[in-house]
Design a protein around this nucleic acid. Sequence first.
DNA 1: TCAAAGTATCGACAGTCATCAATGTGTTCC
DNA 2: GGAACACATTGATGACTGTCGATACTTTGA
Lengths: 109, 109
Amino acid sequence: MEVKVIEACCSPVFDSTLRAAEAEDLAAAFKVLADPVRLRLLSMIANASTGEACVCDLTEPLGRSQPTISHHLSVLVDAGLVEREKRGKWAYFRAVPERLAVLRDALRA
Amino acid sequence: MEVKVIEACCSPVFDSTLRAAEAEDLAAAFKVLADPVRLRLLSMIANASTGEACVCDLTEPLGRSQPTISHHLSVLVDAGLVEREKRGKWAYFRAVPERLAVLRDALRA
DNA sequence: TCAAAGTATCGACAGTCATCAATGTGTTCC
DNA sequence: GGAACACATTGATGACTGTCGATACTTTGA
């Protein structure tokens, strides 16, 4: 899945008729959110008490294999929705609420 | 594609940890928006001067066949994002902004 | 009733994606 | 150095979906 970070300049769906390129970018962004595992990962990371979570915290609750979780986290990182920071053996993930806000604004009427 | 109309009761992603069932519903809703043709259809319908549009108005600008456009419109209808009204030979589509608002609220931080 | 027009449905196909097992990479600790 | 651990990558596979041609359905008008 090729993921493109959506920019804040994108026109909202209801504002004016979307051009083909804008629609492609927006659709790619929504595609990132169109998976239940990724939504739950994003939710768990955003609600982590320390503000961050590592793969080991996220794998077991979702009932998916470690490679699958790692794959979904990479998709979220590529989309700019979460940030990855490697510290020692662990990889910590933090949410980027501004990115979600951009998508939310694209849905304004 | 099985489409489920998302209800307003759904927890936002950032509010509390999403349960599996909530994540499934939300993901299905975003999947409807995760297609450029559907996004442009929604945009064109919402921005139509009369507030509505028929298939004949929507087919040619998007460069897809009539069955493809009809399919995408059905997906949008099933998701509750647009309404279909048949008058004579024509099928007219109107946007349902409240549905989009529900999705937008699910993305609030 | 018949022909034409606007849509919807069906069947098939190609491309995409979520998933896992196996393996690779980098780090920590003895 | 070597073993153990945390995570990323690869390759393969099954399922899903966007697309179109062909066809069916419905309404209009003659």
